[in-house]
Amino acid sequence: MSFASSLIRGFALLGLLTVSYVGVAHAADATPDAKPYVVKNGDEVDMNTYKGFLYYGDECLRCHGPDGMGSSYAPNLTQALKTMTKVQFETTVMSGIKQVSNSSDLVMPAFGTNPDVVDNLNSIYAYLKARSDGVLKRGHPHHLPGT
């Protein structure tokens, strides 16, 4: 599946205005230091971040727990993203992790072949970064109208 077609699919799915999506994504990509999310009042987010919340729930929650807080068998991502760069995050998600020894059996799958993850990587990152930065509360966020 081409990137363009999957993007279109993503837009159709969420009923987004193309312009607004590009606006957010562009802001995130252009300046690495800029926040990749918009969060107001602790629980209102832009559509890109909201999409990240959904796909986090779809692909990551079963191991990394509600709100990215970790579980008995996978790390807390709100902590992990405090020191991890975006590139490291992307590499980990695409290629996975394998730490298997007598005392550890941590294995994260490679999501590189999963279009739902690949196409929404920026969104998932934005959501987790907002959680990690402490600006987005736990629970189900609301999406800001017009974003």
């Binding site: 807080m69 970790g70 579980s71 807390n76």
Partner: peptide, 9 residues
């Protein structure tokens, strides 16, 4: 164990 680390909410 999903709610193990930080509680459910």
């Amino acid at each position: 164990g999903i709610g193990m680390a930080a509680g459910l909410t």
